Amino acid sequence: MSKAVERDLLALAGLAVSGLALASVMSARTPQPRLAPPRRAIAARRDGGARPVTVSAARKLNTAAGTLAVSVLADSTVEHYRGSFKNKAMYAPLIVSALTLATSLHGTADMRPFAHKARDATYLLAAATGLLGTGFHLYNIGKKVGGFCWQNLFYGAPIGAPMAILLSGLLGFCSERVRETDGPRRRPEIFRLPAGRAIAAVVGAGLLGTSGEAGLLHFRGAYHNPFMMVPVTLPPVGAALLMSAASGRRGPEHRLTRWWMRLLALMGFAGVGFHAYGVSRNMGGWRNWSQNILNGPPLPAPPSFAGLALAGLAALGLMREHPDA
């Protein structure tokens, strides 16, 4: 069997595994009915009368924040290990993203309609870590010879990487604000803004930033594979659709936007398979995995699109159930 055939089979296997993982997740989740099941309704009344839809939306946002945290944890571990943890601050995103992941899992399992102070503190810590990390990466690039030139932007510390943990913290913080909505008639709000529209705007901005980071690194790779155009073209369209939903009239279903978010989630999982194929194309392939994982396309990066898409779906669901949100 030729090496070209081996590479193609490996790529197809990676895509198949990613597709099966996504299919299992989608099949395990049954559609949420408009009317809550009796047990949930009884629990909601017992806990203070909050509408189950706000708890459901909050849990979906916790899942989205956790997906981003997993991506950051794996990506920062690989990239900072490659940098030999020369600066002790490089351990910070690993610790914070692990805490954020644990917090998100706790929030996803929590059925109570109350915000949690420990979760709030962790999400705010994640957001602050993302801001500080962006400053560190900008400083790292600026101090190199040539400053902010293409060479340093390509091979220096990635500017957009710390923003993923910032987005994870923001989405998690928003989930707690949605969860603590009081009473069935009060609209979910974040800093007195309608929660659904505010989250849609945040996710739209995040999609644009993540797509820009992918565009920069794929430009470094000369777009030698046509599929490298996908994360540069599909997410900006999704961002525009979300921005339109955030600024549009109340009550529409936004069917196209929903399907586009599902497409972006699929793209995020499938991207792992494409990056695995990119790793296999380096010298030695997966037999030389300890070197090629460090130097090949980052395997944990594409799921960040899936995390943002899940948050977009949560925002759209909240806007559907609360037309004034």
Rank of each mutant, 00 (worst) to 15 (best):
G268L: 08
R46I: 01
V203F: 10
T210Y: 04
A314K: 05
P158I: 12
Y123F: 13
S104I: 00
R185V: 05
L68F: 11
K143E: 08
V17I: 15
V78T: 14
G268D: 12
A128Y: 06
G206P: 07
H218N: 15
E176H: 03
V203N: 15
D8G: 14
N225P: 00
A200I: 05
M163L: 14
A128I: 00
F305I: 04
K60E: 11
P323S: 09
L105A: 10
Q291P: 07
L299Y: 13
L101W: 13
G221W: 11
P52Q: 00
N140F: 01
M228K: 11
V17E: 08
T100Y: 06
V202Y: 08
P194D: 01
L217F: 03
V203I: 15
S168V: 06
L310C: 00
L12N: 05
N62D: 15
I95H: 00
A74F: 13
E6W: 04
I165V: 09
I159K: 04
W289A: 08
S97N: 09
H137Y: 06
L166N: 06
F136W: 14
P37S: 13
L132R: 01
A43P: 01
R82F: 07
A13Y: 04
K86W: 15
G296N: 08
P235F: 07
G133A: 02
L207E: 03
L68R: 07
V55W: 00
W260F: 12
P235V: 00
S27D: 06
M267P: 07
V230R: 07
L193K: 15
P303L: 11
M261K: 04
T54A: 03
E213I: 12
L217H: 03
H80F: 13
N282T: 09
S76E: 01
A57Q: 05
L294V: 11
G49F: 03
R34F: 14
R186D: 07
L68C: 12
L73N: 05
T67C: 14
P52T: 03
A43Y: 00
G135N: 02
R220Q: 13
Q32S: 12
H224I: 12
F219D: 12
A164G: 06
G215I: 10
L99D: 02
T108C: 04
G183V: 02
A89V: 11
L207W: 01
D120E: 11
A205I: 14
L22P: 02
L316A: 05
L132H: 11
L266G: 15
P323G: 02
W286Y: 05
E189F: 06
E189S: 06
A11W: 13
R29L: 13
V272I: 15
G156M: 01
Y91C: 08
N152M: 12
A128C: 09
V53K: 03
A89H: 08
N152C: 11
A109M: 13
N87Y: 14
V145Y: 09
A74Q: 11
P184Y: 04
H224T: 15
N295L: 14
G183M: 03
L242S: 05
M267S: 08
S97M: 03
G317F: 02
A23V: 05
